[in-house]
Design a protein around this nucleic acid. Structure first.
Length: 313
DNA sequence: GCGTCCAGGTCTACC
DNA sequence: GGTAGACCTGGACGC
């Protein structure tokens, strides 16, 4: 493997550790990335034929954030590829996102006041690509978290692309091209996808044709992006919110229970019917920062449970 | 050990 | 446009 190193500065406050290794265990770019002592080994696909291994660590502080990145490629990358990779890593780290307005809103909010202190500097980061986000969304549907993990891990292990570098083996998400050629029955059996198998295969087939990338979707209005994503088979409002790069509030039954308890101090009688109301409240209360409110709360459940004397996790 | 229930939604048919 | 019912299947739970 060839490797090259670069450093990038991030807009403070920025916590590298909390951003790439979230307390709730959410991964940064792929599920089987490795995080040890402040260093993360992960990977991303630049183009269909260019899988890149990444090794990142902080060389700064939350208030003077700086990240060192070593990138591993099979062939010596061109100057253009190198600068493209730097741009992509910046984007995937949300290094240029200014969250001061969120903190200003949060500090006046009785719920968020707690979480921004606990998770100071944490960023919401975009998914690897539309298909990786769709895999997450589809495997989350109608399944307990353990089963979602089981489905995602099988997809990665059987159809993902392995990158060996720096004594680590990281697998990145399969391409739509790869899954589009697999029989739905095989997906169902080998990855325990159930009825989701046909949906995922159809999504893969759709994405092998021209379809907006995450960056294209970001340039659209939130409504346009959502509408486009809901054209994908098996992608409804919840899943579109997960995939869309625009700030959303991807409430499902699990998160609806949590937010209902936090906002009203009681369990909702029917969590599914409470979702539209909670969405409206989040939009009115946190506006364009509701996506940040969402990830900050869900990554701080243990602390919130103690502070508000509620059973949230 | 075995049976039952249901989950971090979506689609379709029917009204 | 609103809504009940079906959808896979592994794991939790009660017995």
């Amino acid at each position: 493997m060839q490797s090259f190193t670069f450093e990038l500065e991030c807009l403070p406050p920025y916590s590298f550790e909390l951003t790439v290794h979230k307390p709730a265990g959410w991964s940064w770019l792929t599920r089987n990335e490795v995080y040890e002592n402040g260093t993360i080994w992960s990977g991303i696909r630049l183009a269909l034929d260019t899988a890149v291994g990444l090794k990142l660590r902080s060389v700064g502080t939350v208030d003077k954030p700086r990240v060192r990145c070593e990138a591993f490629t099979r062939r010596e990358p061109s100057t253009e590829k190198k600068s493209e990779l730097q741009r992509v890593v910046r984007k995937k780290l949300s290094a240029d996102e200014d969250i001061r307005e969120f903190y200003s809103i949060a500090r006046k909010d009785p719920v968020l006041r707690e979480v921004v202190n606990d998770l100071y500097g944490m960023r919401d980061t975009p998914m690897a690509d539309v298909f990786a986000a769709a895999i997450l969304a589809v495997t989350l549907q109608m399944a307990p978290w353990k089963r979602s993990i089981q489905m995602m891990n099988s997809l990665l292990e059987i159809y993902g692309e392995k990158i060996d570098f720096d004594n680590k083996a990281i697998t990145i998400w399969p391409t739509p091209q790869r899954l589009a050629t697999v029989e739905a029955e095989e997906l169902r059996k080998r990855c325990m996808l159930g009825y989701r198998a046909q949906n995922l295969k159809t999504i893969a087939q759709t994405l092998t044709k021209p379809f907006p990338s995450l960056e294209d979707l970001e340039r659209m209005t939130p409504q346009e992006a959502k509408k486009k994503l809901m054209e994908l088979r098996g992608i409804g409002e919840y899943s579109a919110d997960i995939i869309s790069p625009h700030p959303g509030f991807a409430l499902d039954v699990w998160s609806a229970k949590i937010f209902h308890k936090l906002l009203f101090r009681e369990e909702p009688k029917d969590p599914r019917t409470a979702i539209p109301r909670l969405r409206r409240i989040a939009e009115e209360r946190w506006g364009k920062w509701r996506g940040y409110a969402f990830i900050y709360v869900l990554n701080d459940l243990d602390n919130l449970s103690k502070k508000f004397n509620l059973k949230l996790s």
